[in-house]
């Protein structure tokens, strides 16, 4: 039983990785904690839900439209709303919080508070994997899809970061913004593009999210704290760290829900988050991040 639980946790962790990859990237480049990240994910989930229930478009397919849209929204938001405020972390946290409740209010007014979820033909499909005569793993197709997608997304992000001019500029900015500017990197553009990429990745997370979980306008509040915990444990700003932390937390959460009561496990979760922030702000993976 524990193996089954752990495997499901691992698959879920993969989906978490997609959800948080943009959040940690944005922090890395801009030192902004984007509290609205989960709200944007819920927005994307709603778009996927509406396209599915209205036009019958599968969420995986609807990403083709939603992802570029989110990239654009991200670029504009960064330029017009975030960058004029400057770099006070407290002010920026509040600002993104304001964006989050604005999104929540708009989504709530449009669609009420009924929880929605996308039910496709394969929603409750299972792929059985026989490990031995008495142990058959049951892999839910939607979570497996999410897991695979997370490696695709992270792979693409890795390619962008390591094999393109833009990636070089982003990495330079993460390491030292002032120095990057001196060698001719257009910091403003790097920042808005990064924010766009961050939102584009969470758009994918949202489409997967709509397949697996129920959501309404207020759901983002439950998810943002989990997302923050993951990127903090992974080391703020570190993509590989976020992936590993997401997988670990996915498994730990699932296993602890079985071994402890499901109520104690979130306390442990936040306690680890709290202690990490205070004693190891560079994260468990050790990627050193300069304080903003």
């Amino acid at each position: 039983m524990l193996i089954q639980v752990a495997v499901i946790g691992l698959l879920t962790g993969g989906v978490y990785a997609v959800m948080v990859s943009g959040l940690t990237l944005i922090f890395g480049v801009m030192k902004i904690i984007n509290i609205a990240h989960a709200a944007f994910m819920v927005l994307s989930a709603y778009l996927a839900y509406w396209l599915f229930s209205g036009l019958g478009i599968d969420p995986i397919l609807s990403m083709i439209g939603i992802v570029p849209l989110f990239f654009f929204i991200g670029k504009v938001t960064q330029r017009r709303v975030l960058s004029p405020v400057g770099d006070d972390p407290g002010l920026l946290v509040l600002l993104t919080f304001a964006l989050a409740i604005t999104l929540e209010g708009v989504l709530g007014s449009i669609s009420g508070s009924t929880f929605r979820t996308v039910r496709t033909g394969y929603t409750s499909s299972i792929i059985p994997v026989e490990l031995s005569s008495d142990l058959t793993l049951r892999l839910p197709v939607v979570r497996l899809t999410g897991f695979v997608a997370s490696f695709v997304v992270l792979g693409v992000l890795w390619l962008i970061l390591n094999r393109s001019g833009l990636g070089r500029a982003i990495r330079a900015t993460i390491q030292n913004a002032e120095a990057a500017q001196l060698v001719g990197v257009n910091i403003a553009r790097v920042r808005s593009t990064t924010f766009g990429i961050g939102l584009a990745s969470v758009a994918i997370g949202g489409a997967l999210f709509s397949l697996i979980f129920s959501f309404n306008g207020s759901s983002h509040l439950d998810w943002i704290s989990k997302m923050l915990a993951i990127i903090v444990l992974g080391g703020l700003g570190s993509l590989p760290g976020a992936l590993i932390a997401a997988l670990i937390l996915g498994v730990a959460e699932a296993v602890s829900a079985v071994t402890m009561t499901s109520y104690i496990s979130p306390i442990v979760f936040y306690l680890i988050l709290f202690l990490t922030l205070v004693f190891r702000p560079q994260g468990l993976m050790g990627a050193k991040v300069r304080e903003g």
Partner: peptide
């Protein structure tokens, strides 16, 4: 009468911060 007041509140907050 709807959740619209959250949006009003959020936008006001953005405007004040900006």
């Amino acid at each position: 009468a709807s959740q619209f007041h959250l949006a009003v509140f959020g936008v006001l907050m953005v405007v004040i911060i900006l």
